[in-house]
């Protein structure tokens, strides 16, 4: 080693990152080495093949207790009544919860339903999903296409569009609440331009618009990133060949870009559908479901019916969540189908 190439001060004082990595490594090695004797003892008894079950066990236990078991219990909750949490205290009521939820003279008229709050949430959610997914897919597609073009500082722009994805829903909601409030930035800009002050979060239509806007703002970068990866996976020689043939640009777009991006695009559509059905956090903090029930969506309905309202109607909430689960299940199966086909073809 040439001592001149590595001044002694460099090796003597490691950077903070190096020290962190070293400490992490020591902790990891120490912990894992300490666990070696017990695992070796187990291996002696059950053999190498048996160790597979030992490795799977922690995951499977946690999984069964906190995910699989609740899935089954959810059905039991939906079939029982009363506001008690403990299973043995809940009387069996059959399909009463479902029939109460589905008791409507006209499904398009919320006021004709027995559980009008549920149906209001369903209507809101359907409208929200339709608007949000359309806007999300359109905007993230345009962004991905632009970021895929020849650009200066592409890394910077990609980071800019992606940045809100990392923010927590509560932070996102508070950032926009601060801008949209009565004396907020948006009203200031509006009035500086000669407009009237608008109560953005106290007007039903505006409030709905902002829930769509804010959730698109927060998650668009994620879908744009997936689409960008899809665009970059399209072989460049296809474009070169088309160019040599003198194919018009719009034709290149419709004949090469669109068909080859289609699987990715479908995944994005379904992923954003799945997420939009579950929209809760940002909206709950931004509008609280209000004004009135104008921005109350289905997950908030489940949460409030089960936990936040004075009487905890767990059966009703469980029945509603089963209905949501069915919708999500169909969407997920579709998504897995498409990703699978996309990978095999």
């Amino acid at each position: 080693m040439n001592p001149n190439a590595h001044p002694p001060s460099d090796s003597a004082t490691p950077t903070a990152a190096q020290r962190f990595a070293r400490g992490f490594e020591l902790a990891y090695t120490g912990l894992m080495r300490a666990l070696e004797p017990p695992f070796a003892a187990i291996q002696k008894r059950i053999g190498i093949k048996g160790m597979a079950y030992v490795f799977v066990a922690p995951n499977m236990i946690i999984f069964s207790v906190f995910v699989a078991l609740p899935m089954i219990l959810n059905i039991w909750y939906a079939l029982t009544g009363s506001n008690r949490l403990m299973m043995e205290e809940r009387p069996f009521v059959g399909l009463d919860n479902f029939s109460a939820l589905l008791d409507c003279k006209d499904y398009l008229d919320v006021n004709s339903c027995k559980q009008d709050r549920f149906w209001r949430a369903v209507h809101n959610s359907v409208l929200f999903v339709a608007l949000q997914v359309t806007a999300m897919v359109a905007l993230s597609l345009v962004t991905a296409l632009i970021l895929n073009g020849k650009l200066r500082a592409r890394g910077f722009f990609r980071a800019v569009f992606f940045f809100p994805v990392l923010l927590s829903p509560v932070v996102v909601a508070l950032i926009w609440k601060w801008i949209l409030q009565r004396d907020g930035l948006l009203n200031a800009l509006l009035m500086a331009g000669g407009g009237e002050r608008v109560a953005f979060l106290h007007d039903a239509s505006w409030s709905f618009f902002w829930t769509v806007f804010v959730s698109v703002w927060a998650h668009m970068g994620f879908y744009a990133l997936i689409l960008l990866a899809g665009l970059q996976a399209i072989p460049a020689d296809l474009y070169e060949a088309a160019e040599m043939d003198g194919t018009p640009k719009w034709r290149v777009f419709w004949r090469i870009t669109v068909p080859l991006l289609l699987p990715t695009l479908l995944v994005v559509v379904i992923l954003s559908l799945i997420r939009a059905v579950q929209a809760f956090d940002e909206i709950y903090v931004l509008t609280g479901g209000g004004p009135g029930t104008a921005t109350q969506f289905i997950v908030q309905y489940i949460y409030e019916t089960a936990f936040a309202n004075q009487v905890h109607l767990l059966g009703l909430a469980a029945a509603a969540s089963l209905l949501v689960a069915v919708v999500l299940m169909v969407l997920t199966v579709l998504q897995l189908r498409i990703s699978y086909h996309g990978k095999t073809s």
Binding site: V67, L73, N74, L85, M86, A318, S321, A325, L328
Partner: peptide, 18 residues
């Protein structure tokens, strides 16, 4: 269970935790 997000099993998961 990829298709079972926590928002769908809130009540029974809460029971287990309780």
């Amino acid at each position: 269970t990829l298709m079972v997000p926590i928002s769908v099993i809130l009540i029974p998961a809460f029971l287990v935790v309780t």
